[in-house]
């Protein structure tokens, strides 16, 4: 039987890699491999997943040194000499084994005012937003984020500056800044300006390179840089 040699992080912040042999199968995903180990070899292995089809963003891990969504990553594309090394996401505290603590990640979405602020009620007419407006196009280009944390784990600026909001939160802020229905666009710019915000980005482009949804948070952050600079010049920041 063709076997895959899999090294998996065991423990919390401190710990080590344990090695397991997993039977190879056609079209096997990295999440399949982790699930096999947990169900057949190591019942105490902790990991996180939900939808298994690339929608929920909960199964991201570091696979052979690169942050990936494991449910849509085929083993054949990432194995090196018949081996996989699977670890929790970088730049986040480790709870246990492959489970990273996402509170800091989503806390920063909150700091970036990553929620929609309604200006109408359910009794108002539906807002008519043309998909052809530049603002809606900019929002649409960035809206499909699934919150997996891959960009955050891949960002060197997050590693250097723990206060930095990170690509996902800033990308979210950009979608809302471009949503004409939102009632807190000026306040949001205030929240995302500064070296812990959009001005902290060094345009390394790792976030866009690694984003499983092929989004470009760097472009969103560049948009926020322009918007905050304009607002600052006009004295509105």
């Amino acid at each position: 039987m063709d076997l895959l040699r899999v090294k998996i992080w065991r423990g919390g912040e401190s710990g080590g890699f344990a090695t397991y042999d997993v039977p190879r199968q056609g079209d096997q995903t990295v999440l399949d491999v982790v699930t096999y180990i947990q169900r057949q070899l190591e019942p105490s292995l902790a990991y996180r997943f939900a939808c298994r089809v690339g929608m929920c963003g909960s199964c991201a891990m570091t696979v052979n040194g690169v942050a990936r969504w494991t449910c849509r990553t085929h083993v054949a594309k990432v194995e090196i000499d018949g081996g996989l090394e699977i670890a929790p996401l970088r730049n986040l505290p480790v709870i246990k084994d492959l489970v990273a603590d996402m509170r800091e990640f989503f806390g920063k979405w909150k700091k970036a005012r990553g929620h929609f602020v309604a200006t109408a009620t359910r009794r108002d007419e539906f807002a008519r937003i043309s998909p052809e407006t530049p603002q809606r196009k900019a929002a649409d280009a960035a809206i499909e984020c699934i919150g997996c944390g891959v960009c955050y784990a891949s960002c060197d600026t997050v590693s250097w500056n723990p206060e930095y909001l990170g690509p996902a939160a800033l990308n979210r802020a950009w979608t809302l800044f471009n949503d004409v229905r939102d009632g807190a666009r000026a306040e949001r710019l205030q929240d995302v300006a500064g070296d812990a915000g959009c001005q902290g980005c060094h345009t390394h482009l790792s976030c866009g390179e690694r984003c499983p949804k092929r989004l470009q948070p760097t472009a969103a952050i560049a948009g926020l840089k322009r918007a905050t600079a304009l607002a600052a010049m006009r004295g509105k920041l």
């Binding site: 205030q190 300006a193 500064g194 915000g197 001005q199 905050t228 600079a229 600052a232 920041l237």
Partner: peptide, 12 residues
Amino acid sequence: MSARREALLWLA
């Protein structure tokens, strides 16, 4: 430092 000043320094 204020957000405004940071944004202006970035622009500078």
